[in-house]
């Protein structure tokens, strides 16, 4: 129980500090990353790709990016996939991802605002 109390305290502190500098207000975000996590995504590394996105968000100390998942999404031949959407509704679909590519997408697309053309897939997903 002692551990749990310590944990709650730590999280509360994070919450207070984060709220001060938070740019997300009532669901507003600058980028949303959606990763399909169906069986066909998982078997080719979707979890590792999602973890790489989370790691990169942490490394760049981003506070206005949301990472979410969806169950099923089209062709398995381009998985793992990530859809990066900005707050204006522009959507870019990246495919055949690896953890390294995911980190690069965060660095270039999300931090610097440039689409990583080499990983863009145009295959319709639905």
């Amino acid at each position: 129980m002692a551990e749990k109390i310590k944990t709650l305290d730590q999280l509360r502190k994070i919450r207070e500090e984060t709220r001060k500098k938070m740019s997300i207000r009532e669901g507003k975000y600058r980028f949303k990353v959606t990763i399909p996590m169906g069986t066909s995504g998982i078997v080719v590394g979707a979890r590792e790709v999602m973890k790489a996105f989370l790691d990169a968000i942490e490394e760049h100390n981003l506070t206005d990016v949301i990472v979410t998942q969806t169950g099923f999404m089209g062709s398995r031949s381009i998985q793992p996939v990530a859809i990066v959407e900005d707050d204006k509704g522009n959507k870019i679909t990246y495919g055949n991802l690896t953890p390294d590519k995911a980190k690069e997408i965060v660095e270039r697309h999300i931090v610097k605002g440039e689409v990583v053309q080499g990983y863009v897939v145009l295959t319709p997903l639905e």
Partner: peptide, 10 residues
Amino acid sequence: DVPLSNAEVI
């Protein structure tokens, strides 16, 4: 209201 996908929370 602090999202779970916040860098510090992750």
